[in-house]
Write a protein that binds this DNA or RNA. Structure first.
Lengths: 348, 348
DNA sequence: TTTGGCACTCGACCCTTGCAAGTGCCAATT
DNA sequence: AATTGGCACTTGCAAGGGTCGAGTGCCAAA
């Protein structure tokens, strides 16, 4: 009978098929799925009893589990992982969804607007919570540095990057300064750093003090120190969040764990760790349940993607939801949005 | 017996006393409160039966209601209103709370930092969701306007206010411009608007075009238009939110209404309407349940206060929570934080 | 290797019952 | 007139008990 009358699957192939069916059904219905329901909904050519054997094996191997002795099976984190890695095909977005991405993002005015639109778009498309990291400074180049005197011993430092991002800091100077000194400093800094990327700025600015008289060195040092700390500390600091309300719909399911989840979504430090360091824009990354235990979100899955103009990603964006999420759909949405935003950010 | 052996309350006074007791007990226990429990916990010198009569009267007048025919009484919005207006005394903050406010806010670096610390502080003190509006531009004065050429026909407009706020916009010019023109424009704009408040800027900038040659007028107009729209549109736009997780603790109580609430807390437009227009920093304002029905938050109460350096408030901050909240404590916390932040923002 | 049958488990649901809290009313008291 | 104790009534809630159904594991047969 093996390899017989029709295109027959080998045993292991069918087991994987069963796992896929379990994941799909469970994600759709939110209820433990049993052997009978499985053969009804998917046309596997075998009887429930056969499925039961396969399920027992899958449970043995840790891919599924049963919440109660006599209930259906539920995928484990390990099961979802296998599903994502080997069993799912990327689900292409529907034309309306594609249109939504375009119309939603094309009207963006500046960088802030791009980010805020993106995060709301992601939340809406996936019906989950979305997180978007502002493009990091480290990979951008400096467009302009502006110094503005606020008081005799206070200067506002404004840093403008080629991605249109503006960072500001107030510096208290060790001694009073005049417009001439500040003007000269502004000119020299700009001559040194305009067009440079972050790493270069660090080395170039260091030598700056030598070109000024000893009496001004402290002032120069204060300004450059602030400039550098702005670059470093605000490095990848800011994130935008939207769609937390979508998680409340799953509320019952997270049970009483909703509060720490919402708290975590307000903690930008946690979110940044969650988004991880961006590598290259293309691949979408999935972390499932216990895989992000360090961040205290072991009940959730996270789907992220880097984005940015070139081949290198400037930052990350992603979606946070229950482990029982529609992985193919979410992966497709995050990937599509990340690609589109990257295109928008490309130099024009 | 009236006015007899001890300090006796008149009937109406006792009814109010009963209402106060009901509100306090209900807020503390979250459970409908009955006549027996009332005389046990508060030493009113009368029997449960008497209290029952008073409660019947209070219900008649709409201050309390019973969820089920034979359950205890629960305050209505009208009851809370009376409680807040006439029955509650401001509960002074505990010394640890005062210390927390100081240590938490004193380390703030710049305006962004003040706002983000404030909102987290409020959320922590009240154990509810907190909202803080960034100081509005309209009451601030202009410290400096900076123009930076990004490309021959693109200029970045940066607006710096005396509160340390920085707003930015990119302008596409109708024609190429050179550094000379931009430099002159920068000088003229700053001469006109530095130190002026928003209302003055609007009139002063209008005449600017006349001082330039006809060929440059379109360029000048583009820049000034952006400057004005920045002042107007970003008017009171930004808000910070924290503590949404605290609302999840009340989760059961909001029942399935948690999702729209979380969504509303992400809609800055709604929040701004909620905070309302700030008048003067001092009085704390309370909106209870149905009183803010327009914003779709009729199940919640909102406690707000204006804040800002002078007698006029620059912006508002507040707290959103269930109608069954600890009003005296919340009012005290919001008031104290608003006063402290105002002090920090005062010119130094 | 697959299949049908069968006994077993266990949560979900429904119904009943008892309980406790709370109310409203009334007659008695001060 | 206000207050009080008593009493009957309502009603949600929790506990107990029985049934049902979905699902499993195992085993013998094909």
């Amino acid at each position: 009978m093996r390899g017989g009358r029709c295109t027959r699957l080998s045993v292991d192939d069918r087991k994987l098929d069963v796992l896929r069916a379990i994941v799909e059904d469970y994600v759709a219905t939110q209820e433990p799925v049993g052997s009978k329901a499985l053969v009804d909904r998917h046309h596997l050519g075998v009887s429930p009893a056969t499925i039961r054997n396969d399920m027992a094996a899958l449970e043995e191997e840790g891919y599924i589990a049963q919440p109660h002795t006599s209930a259906g099976r539920v995928p484990t984190d390990k099961g979802y992982r296998l599903f994502v890695d080997r069993l799912s095909t990327v689900k292409p977005l529907s034309p309306p969804e594609r249109r939504a991405i375009q119309t939603f993002l094309d009207g963006a005015l500046d960088l802030d607007d791009v980010v805020s639109r993106t995060v709301r778009l992601l939340a809406q498309l996936t019906r989950q919570a979305a997180v978007v990291q502002y493009p990091s400074l480290s990979r951008s180049t400096v467009r302009h540095v502006e110094l503005v005197m606020l008081a005799p011993a206070r200067v506002l430092v404004v840093l403008i990057t080629d991605t249109g991002r503006v960072e500001q800091r107030v510096v208290d100077l060790p001694a009073d300064a005049d417009d001439v000194l500040v003007g000269e400093l502004r000119a020299r800094i700009n001559a040194l750093v305009t067009g440079q990327d972050f790493a270069s700025v660090e080395t170039r600015v260091a030598e700056l003090g030598e070109r000024f008289g000893p009496e001004d060195r402290a002032t120069v040092a204060a300004v450059t120190a602030t400039l550098l700390s702005t670059l470093i500390e605000r490095h990848e600091e800011r994130v935008a969040v939207a769609g937390t309300g979508n998680l409340a719909r799953y509320g019952q399911e997270f049970d009483h764990e909703l509060e720490p989840l919402l708290s975590a979504l307000e903690e930008h430090v946690v979110l940044l760790r969650l988004l991880g360091e961006a590598t290259s824009p293309t691949p979408v990354r999935v972390r499932i349940g216990s895989e992000n235990a360090q961040t205290g979100l072991s009940a959730t899955s996270v789907v992220t993607s880097g984005y940015g103009p070139g081949e290198l990603a400037l930052a990350s964006m992603g979606v946070v939801g229950p482990t029982r999420m529609d992985y193919p759909g979410t992966i497709a949405a995050v990937g599509a949005v990340a690609r589109y935003v990257s295109k928008i950010l490309a130099p024009h």
